[in-house]
Computed example of a mutant assay.
Amino acid sequence: MIKSMTGFGKATCELSDKKISIEIKSLNSKQLDVNMRLPNIYREKDLILRNELANQLGRGKVDVGFYVDYLGAEKNASINSQVIETYYNQLSPIADKLGLSGNTDILRAIMPLPDTVKIEQAELDESEWATIFDTFKSALDKLNSFRAQEGKVLQKDIVERIANIKNYQKAVEPYESERIEKVRERILDQLNELKEKINLDKNRFEQEMIFYLEKLDITEEKVRLKNHLNYFIETIENEELVGKKLGFITQEIGREINTMGSKANHSEIQKLVIQMKDELEKIKEQNLNVL
């Protein structure tokens, strides 16, 4: 069963002084590409989180966001009284000189200035981190469930398109003998027009005719195409993390379809080949999102 690289997972936890929401979303990518948005206090755990993502997700463009809502006042924020006094001592004489009165107005002007509030870096509590990491893994589980559901939709669509290619291939068969006979008749008609002007070696002509018709034969292409289509279905139903492998198989399918088209020499077969190519292109587009 395949998985999609597209997914979303969210989980939350409440601690003594804050609520943390963790969101993880992923899109398709050839490699694992992680964009992590962490509060400074959790930066030291960045590598642990990335390793967990690599183990669980394989590849994809992944965005991780930690969002913190404090349930009360931040304990690590405090007024820097020394800085405020310095600002006040500098601004007060200027206010008197300009005839501006009122300490409240000066204080209101001071507070937005740099360093009036100290933010002390809190230390990470390991027991708190254990709860947060469990929440992170819960969001990751939800993301993986989302990927699995999307994978079912992708697989259903892709398998149906493989079946369509098989049906188009079967539809080629009634035209094959007709195609060869028409080619033979066309060559003979052209040669009959020339036979009075040239000396024709019948034996050599038959040999060349057989060689030419063999080059137009598409039996080998049909056999290989059928094998590739069956292998594609076998792979998608029985293996995991098959996106790249399916990509290689679709290349081989495309090669056989293209060869059939180049050998066709028949308008109806060409139409069927075009329909097969159309289905294959849609499979390739879907496969870009397969993990």
Rank of each mutant, 00 (worst) to 15 (best):
L91H: 04
L98F: 12
E206N: 12
I253P: 12
V64G: 03
I41A: 03
N199F: 08
I20P: 05
P39G: 07
G99V: 11
S4D: 12
D141A: 13
I233K: 05
I106C: 09
Q56N: 11
D105T: 10
V242M: 00
N289D: 14
E239R: 01
A163T: 12
D63F: 12
E176G: 00
I22F: 00
D105H: 14
E237A: 01
T6H: 02
A148L: 03
I274V: 15
Y88V: 02
L15S: 07
D69Y: 06
K137A: 07
I253T: 06
H266S: 07
Q286D: 13
E23D: 10
K19Q: 15
R179P: 13
E193L: 12
E120H: 08
L71P: 13
S4I: 11
A77M: 13
A54M: 11
G247D: 13
E178I: 07
S26E: 11
E128R: 00
R179T: 13
A122T: 14
M5F: 04
L49G: 03
E196D: 11
R255N: 07
G65S: 05
E185Y: 01
E44L: 08
H228G: 11
K3V: 10
I233E: 12
R184M: 04
K166G: 06
V117E: 05
F136C: 09
V242F: 01
L280N: 11
A148F: 01
I48E: 15
I79T: 08
D96Q: 15
I165F: 10
L272Q: 06
G58T: 06
Q149G: 08
S29I: 05
R50I: 14
N258P: 02
F211M: 02
V223R: 12
F232S: 03
Y212Q: 01
D217F: 08
Q169N: 11
L49V: 15
N167M: 10
I158L: 13
Y212G: 02
F205G: 04
I22H: 01
P93N: 02
Q56M: 07
A130P: 00
E52Y: 01
L246E: 09
I218T: 09
N40E: 12
L194Q: 09
S177M: 13
Q149N: 13
G72M: 08
Y67H: 09
L143H: 06
K3L: 09
V117Q: 03
K156E: 11
D105P: 00
L15P: 07
E14W: 02
F232E: 05
I48D: 13
M1K: 07
E178P: 04
D96V: 13
Y70H: 15
E239N: 04
I198P: 03
F8N: 08
R147G: 08
Q286S: 14
L98V: 08
L140S: 08
I94P: 04
W129M: 14
V172D: 02
E252T: 04
E193D: 01
D33E: 15
N164H: 07
S138I: 04
K45Y: 00
Y231P: 00
T12V: 00
Y70D: 07
L107S: 09
T135Q: 00
E256Q: 14
G261S: 05
A73Q: 11
E120A: 11
N164Q: 13
G261M: 07
G102C: 05
E120Q: 09
Q121F: 00
K170E: 15
N28P: 08
P112W: 10
M260A: 01
V242L: 01
